[in-house]
Every structure is written in C-alpha cells, then in structure tokens.
Design a protein around this nucleic acid. Structure first.
Lengths: 231, 231
DNA sequence: TCAGCAGGTTGACTTAAGTCAATGATAATC
DNA sequence: GATTATCATTGACTTAAGTCAACCTGCTGA
C-alpha cells in the first residue's frame, strides 16, 4: 500500500500493454486505486466462483489460469507473465471468476478494485478502448484455442504451439518455460501422450530434444503438421 | 440506407442488449452511422481473414459463426439471433475476422463501420462499458466452451447443452432450432456420433425424442451426466 | 547418505469417437 | 407429384489418445 503513490508504479503502469500511451494524470489516478500484493509459489489468487471484486496485472512472476473438470483433470487457459492483465472478464461481466488462478512462481501483482476502476473508465474513454482491445485480443486467442482443441489432434496442437513459442522467442532453440506436465495441460492432453508425441516429432526429424530445450530442425514440416494435424 | 435516420431504427437500437439504456441522443448518433443490410440464407457475411471494417447487429434472422479446419470439418462458435452483436472482436483488436459468418436464414443486419464507431466510443464512455460487458460475457462463454471441448466427452457436452437450452427456453420440452448436423458441429462432433448419443440418452431414459423435439425426462440424471460426462 | 517424492518416459491395454458406407426420411424445387 | 438434394440414422471398422502400471531419473530434506 505504501507503493500506491510510488512514482515507479505510475511509470510501470504506463509501460503495461493495457495502459501504454495513457496520459500521466490518468496513470496517477490508476496507481491511486492500485494495490500491490504478493503471492508465493503455488498460492491461489482466486478460484472459480469467487466474486470478481477486481482484476490484476502481473508485476513480477507468472500466473496460471485454469479449469478443473469434475474428475480432476486440469485444462490451462492461459499463462500470464509480467505486464499481462488477468481477471478483467469478471469485472465487466459483473460476475464471478470463471476459472482458477494460482501463482506459478513467487509473484507480485497489482490489484485494481472493480468499483474504483469502473469509475475511471467511465471518465476516460481511452481506457475503455484500450481494454476493449485487450479483451478482443483475448477472444481471438480463445478462438484459436477452440480451433486447436476441436479441430486438431495432439500432434497438430503441439506443432502449432512450438511454432508459436519460436515466434515469441524468435529463435529455433526453444526453452520450455513450463514443465512438460504443465505443457500437456495447456495443450489439453496428458503428460504421457505429450511425451510420446515429442519422441515421435524427434524420431521423424522435426525437432531435437534435450530436457527442456527443444530445437526446431524442420520448420516447414512443422508448419505443415500444424495445419494438417497429422503425421 | 433510407432507413438510416428512421425513428424505428433508433428505437430498435435502444432495445438491443448492447445499447440498452443509452441516451436518445447517442442512439441517434449510432443510427446515423448504421447501415441496414440484407443477406439471403446461406449468404456469407464475412470470411476468416477479411479485414474487420466494422461489426454487425442481427436485426432479423440468424447468423452462424464458425471455423473450418484444413480438412474441411466445421466447428461452430456461435449462433446469433435478433439483438445480438457480432464481429466486434476484429474491430477492437484492429485485425481481420478470426472466423466465418453466414446467414442461416434470410436476415437483416445492422452494420456499424469501424472508424465511425470508434469515434463514438471515444466520446461516450458508457458505450465502452457496455461493450466491455458484452465482450466479457462472450469470453466467459468461450471459457465454458473450452471446458466442454477439452474436459468432457460428447455425452457430457450434449447433456450440458440440453440443460442450457431448457434453461433458455424454460421448459422441459425443447424445440431444437438447429438441424442435428449443426448441433453436432456446435458440440464439436459429427452428426453420426450425435445421433448415437441421442439414441443412447433416450434408451437410458434421460429424454424422449421426436424429430426436432426433445423432452427431458430425468433432469437430475442429465445434470449428473453433464458433470461427470460419462454414462 | 539414503529415503522419498515429483517429474518424465515407455509399454500394454482399453475405449470413445471418428471414418466409410448403406439406407431412410424429409423437404425443397421444378 | 415426381425428382433431387439435404438430413438423419445405423452398422462395421479403425484409430487416436486415454488409463494403468512399471521404471527411471534427479532432488530435497531428515
């Protein structure tokens, strides 16, 4: 709370994709309602059904958003890192959180309480537009995810994800930031299957694997696989 | 185009969930930029990759939003009816449409061009908030959809959907508004499988089926099925 | 140092659901 | 009212991927 009016927080908010380009004054207003909170690794930030009393920005660390099926299987929806906002859906739908959130590492988050924030948006259309862009972006991501989950088989999803990572990391040598178990859940499958598919990808000469490091060998082949979704 | 300044269009816009409660003046501004367009059954409204030059409201008729996998399978994302907005994602993400849209029936749509609309939003925060609510709602729907697609088997998805319909229609006797083929695609499966599952549901005494009319017999059982997702 | 545990890999088996193909049943069109 | 399409259903078959179980690391902490 001491950091509320901290100059550095204002600055940081302004570097965030959600608030980039906003006027100093509005950033100050934002930081006025913001609270910095810390979560230890594995701590749960909110659970499905919790009332959406506000939303978060990741300041440091990593956060996993996921759902649990009745029989205990987990499906990861997102992994968020520094600068990413999450939990805004509940704020604007005026409902409870539709999924769970836990810290994957010791993390510091900026919490923005719903009511205060809505007031700011009402006073500042640019803020609204910025948020609309973020939500639209997220919707688009989900579209892709539904596409992957319903239209592609595991190898296809895996290939698509590897390509996505290589774009993000802009290199052919990928460092997995997630345990393979987590990656499996993100791809909507289980560790065993993922393991088999990775070996298969290696056997067929698409990639080479050394622990958490994956190198793309045959990018063209991977692209094809991601599209067709079959070996 | 003649209808642009039509009083009835203003009124209709104000009854739309997106714009409900907005001041007369803003509604008039909206109707000033709106265009009413007609599409015949099966006509495509936009395709994946088309530039998002604006978005739509369904005035009359029904619209299907869907994706196609490389090998031709279709996954329906939404079916929209009168009053529903669609295509806003591309507008605010400032990108192209991520999916296809076709008219399921002869339909009349209200088109709102992107640039004009953004100006209005910038001038009117309430409009932004309203849109944020809609997008959040949609995001929440997708969350559920991903949940269903990745965590539940077809019977579970089907049971969940039937319950959803019965809530919407608030009766135990459901009238399917979609062909079973379409329903299959909405559930992320194929007609054959859907057909088998429906027979199975009937055989096990959960529902009775007569053509497009489905009556829920054992609601409790269905709920359980939707949760557990297994017979 | 060693027990214990989480994460990863591999094999054998099972199963849900997709494909292919044939046949009825509507509904639409001329 | 006959003729195509389109949709729905059913059966036989195939297959991707999940379950179960064994086993192997490499750590962490007593």
């Amino acid at each position: 709370m001491v950091e509320n009016r901290d100059k550095s927080l204002v600055k940081w908010l302004g570097e965030t994709s959600l608030f980039v380009g906003m006027e100093e004054q509005h950033l100050r207003e934002l930081s006025g309602i913001a609270m910095v909170v810390s979560y230890k690794r594995r701590a749960t930030i909110f659970s499905e059904g919790d009332p959406g009393s506000g939303f978060y920005l990741v300041k440091e660390g990593k956060v996993k958003i996921y759902m649990i099926s009745p029989d205990g299987k987990e499906q990861i929806l997102h992994i968020f890192g520094p600068g990413d906002p999450f939990g805004e859906v509940a704020v604007f739908a005026g409902q409870s959180f539709p999924a769970h959130a836990v810290a994957l590492e010791n993390s510091r988050l900026v919490f923005l309480p719903r009511d205060d924030f809505v007031v700011l948006v009402a006073a500042n259309p640019a803020l609204g537009l910025s948020l609309l862009a973020v939500l639209s972006q997220r919707l688009r991501q989900f579209t892709k995810m539904i596409d992957a989950l319903s239209l592609k088989e595991v190898p296809g999803r895996l290939a698509a994800h590897l390509l996505y990572l290589s774009k993000k990391q802009s290199t052919g040598d990928l460092q997995l930031e997630l345990s393979k178990t987590q990656l499996a859940s993100l791809l909507g499958t289980i560790p065993e299957t993922l393991s088999r598919m990775l070996s298969k990808l290696q056997r067929e000469g698409f990639v080479t694997i050394e622990g958490a490091k994956i190198s793309i060998v045959d990018r063209v082949g991977l692209v094809e696989l991601a599209e067709i979704g079959k070996f």
